[in-house]
Nucleic acid binder design. Structure first.
Length: 655
DNA sequence: ATAGAACCTGTGAA
DNA sequence: ATTCACAGGTTCT
């Protein structure tokens, strides 16, 4: 166990030897995962377009010189976690207690007291009161972490990745009232274990990613180009309801705004769970505020769970989403979807903490919590020759019926599922069956359905064919199809032919590599010299790829082989890809449309109001290193206006 | 059955 | 200062 001497700060990589024991920060538990199996930055970061609710905060900790004396023996090899039973773990956890949300705050514009501020993590004014940081004596060495955090229904999960050692560290934060009462034993037994189980499930750790990378790279030269630089792109197993909402928001939208919308939805329609405080960077780092001289205060973040469908069913939701949260035309889709779900599946929602409970019990499917008796639809793929297909318009009508006054037709369709359990139950359906169910919702088409299936419903072969896919299919694979239903399916099938059962996972690697947000990811910047983009745009010799005959591909239920983490991992630092491809121009007709809508008395696109300039430091400025100014709002979470800032004006014409 | 147009909003670039 | 294209599409005609 020879650890390199100088790996103190944000080591991009060092070989993750199983012999190197984990060194979790105080209060954190360890989960053994090599970076080739998952790289959080490429997976849960809200820049990836997969999950949208994780925050990324920089945290600095003084480097502990003397070896942390931990009594645990860490097994080498496969992913296995160690939950330290040491009481000091709990002590440390309780020491840094979360701050309560201000109860006196009076916010009329929102349902929850803090909703105007917390979703952006307001910087506190006073930078003097440093409570947790040790007094910084002369030459303290600081280590910077990126900490990801997200609220589940009953807790906040904190995640850090130690790439050099091959561990993910996690920690559970609870509301004040609960955390104060817990003994160390309870903390571990009631919460930390559940978090660990949830994390394994959520991160899909049973799938051997590194091994699949090798297989994909063998079959696909294009994939091989990205395999090293974009190692660790793993598909999450997200909550279906949240995933459904997020990808309804995704239509005709960019990743940054999708994330903002999902966050805004949470903060507006679910109560605050707890507030955490992130200290400002230590002065010694000299990364940030040295130029300004302004001592930054701590960043406070209040976490909200994702709201249940029932919270989005009241009449005013659509208008609120539209005028206050700037959802645009997607407001109606979200509202209708929530309404149809809540009125169709009338069983009680699972209690708080169901995510971890499900994972702890090893139950992948929803029907555990709710009896699924009078299902109107079979749990197996529906026999397609139905008399009269239930159309989206029908669903729309159904949504608009009064709450209690269910027509005979409606009541016949009701189930004892809850919205949550119904969506979970789609995980046990076949790909076409679950897809058909999803497409019934307004705002869900083939692409969005495939996103949901891939990212939350155990359909790893599902390939969402979007603009990117058409583009790189043509450019890199020579697959040219006409955009449209037929081309969509053909393209997806051909990629399934190429990549196999987990084709959707491979697709995600290419997709991520194709994001402009990651255009410079792990690319050594040659000083002053721009790397030419011809590398990627130039045609690549790919004999055979163009002639894959599109046999119908029948997706199979996912298998879950145990992960065999590869101990070796090499990072490629070749400055190969600095691509920015040129997207195809859209039809000129859009110009007309824009002009027309602008002249239709809408609010101006750019508001000049400055009053609501509250920044949105989802990530501290030091972390936003987007080098491409052309990045469409990816690089920084600093909108010109806040959600609460906008004035409601438009009474939309409803056709 | 298949094309086009329309749809909200925010941002960088021209 | 203004305008425009574009962003992980879907719905309607």
């Amino acid at each position: 166990m020879s650890s390199p001497a100088g790996i103190s700060r944000c080591a991009t990589f060092a070989p993750g030897s199983p012999l190197i024991p984990p060194r979790p920060p105080p209060g954190y538990a360890s989960l053994r995962v090599l970076p080739s199996e998952i790289l959080l930055e490429l997976t849960i970061s809200n820049r990836c377009g997969q999950a949208f609710r994780w925050r990324a905060n920089d945290v600095w900790e003084p480097v502990d010189r003397e070896e942390a004396k931990r009594d645990t023996v860490y097994p080498a090899g496969n992913s296995s976690s160690v939950v330290t039973k040491d009481e000091s773990l709990v002590d440390a956890a309780v020491a840094n207690r979360p701050i309560k949300a201000d109860p006196d705050e009076n916010d009329t514009s929102s349902a929850w007291p803090d909703a105007e501020h917390d979703d952006v993590g307001v910087k506190a004014e006073h930078g003097q009161k440093k409570e947790s940081t040790s007094s910084l004596t002369g030459d303290v060495e600081w280590q910077r972490w990126t900490e990801y955090s997200m609220a589940l229904s009953d807790r906040v999960i904190l995640l850090r990745q130690d790439v050099s050692r091959g561990y993910v560290y996690h920690r559970t934060r609870l509301p004040d009232a609960i955390e104060a009462q817990l003994s160390g034993h309870d903390y571990v037994e009631l919460y930390e274990r559940g978090t660990d189980a949830w994390l394994r499930d959520y991160l899909n750790l049973r799938v051997p990613l590194d091994q699949m990378y090798q297989e994909w790279a063998d079959k696909d030269k294009v994939f091989a180009r990205f395999a090293k630089r974009f190692a660790g792109v793993r598909m999450l197993r997200q909550d279906p309801w949240e995933c459904l909402c997020a990808f309804i928001c995704s239509s005709n939208n960019n990743i940054a705004r999708i994330g903002q919308m999902v966050m805004a939805l949470s903060h507006r329609y679910s109560p605050p769970l707890l507030t955490l405080e992130y200290p400002p960077p230590p002065p010694t780092t000299g990364t940030d505020a040295t130029s300004t001289g302004v001592e930054a205060g701590p960043t406070r973040i209040t976490y909200h769970p994702f709201p249940a469908a029932a919270a989005l069913t009241s009449e005013d939701v659509e208008g609120t989403l539209r005028s206050e949260l700037a959802f645009g035309y997607r407001a109606k889709y979200i509202w209708q979807t929530a309404r149809v779900l809540a009125q169709t599946h009338v069983g009680p929602e699972p209690d708080c903490g169901y995510e971890c409970r499900l994972a702890l019990e090893g139950l992948n499917l929803a029907p555990v919590h709710v009896t699924t008796r009078n299902l109107s639809r079979p749990a197996t793929p529906p026999p397609t020759p139905r008399k009269r297909k239930r159309t989206k318009t029908d669903a729309n009508r159904f949504a608009k019926e009064g709450d209690g006054s269910a027509s005979t037709e409606s009541s016949r369709l009701q189930t004892t599922h809850s919205p949550t359990s119904f969506l979970h139950s789609l995980r046990s359906m076949t790909y076409p069956g679950a897809r058909a169910e999803l497409i019934k919702f307004q705002g869900v088409g083939p692409k969005v359905a495939d996103c949901i299936l891939l990212m939350s419903m155990d359909q790893p072969s599902s390939i969402p064919v979007d603009r990117h896919v058409y583009q790189f299919a043509a450019r890199w694979y020579g697959m040219r199809v006409k955009e449209g239903t037929k081309g969509y399916e053909e393209l997806a099938d051909r990629f399934r032919q190429l990549w196999g059962e987990y084709a959707g996972w491979a697709h995600s690697v290419i997709f991520t590599a194709d994001l402009r947000s990651f255009q410079n990811f792990k690319v050594e910047a040659v000083k002053g010299e721009k790397v030419k983009q011809e590398d990627l745009s130039s045609s690549i010799e790919l004999p055979g790829l163009n002639t894959i005959d599109a046999k119908p591909f029948v997706p199979t239920p996912p298998t879950a082989p145990l992960v065999a983490a590869q101990p070796e991992y090499e990072m490629l630092l070749k400055p190969v890809d600095k691509s920015s491809y040129h997207r195809p121009r859209r039809p000129v007709s859009r110009r007309v449309q824009t002009l027309e809508s602008a002249s239709a008395g809408k609010e101006p696109t750019h508001r000049s109001t400055l009053e609501g300039k509250a920044s949105c430091p989802l990530r501290p400025s030091s972390q936003a290193q987007t080098s491409s100014p052309a990045e469409n709002a990816h690089g920084d979470a600093t909108p010109s206006t806040t959600m609460a800032d906008r004035v409601k004006i438009t009474r939309r014409k409803r056709a």
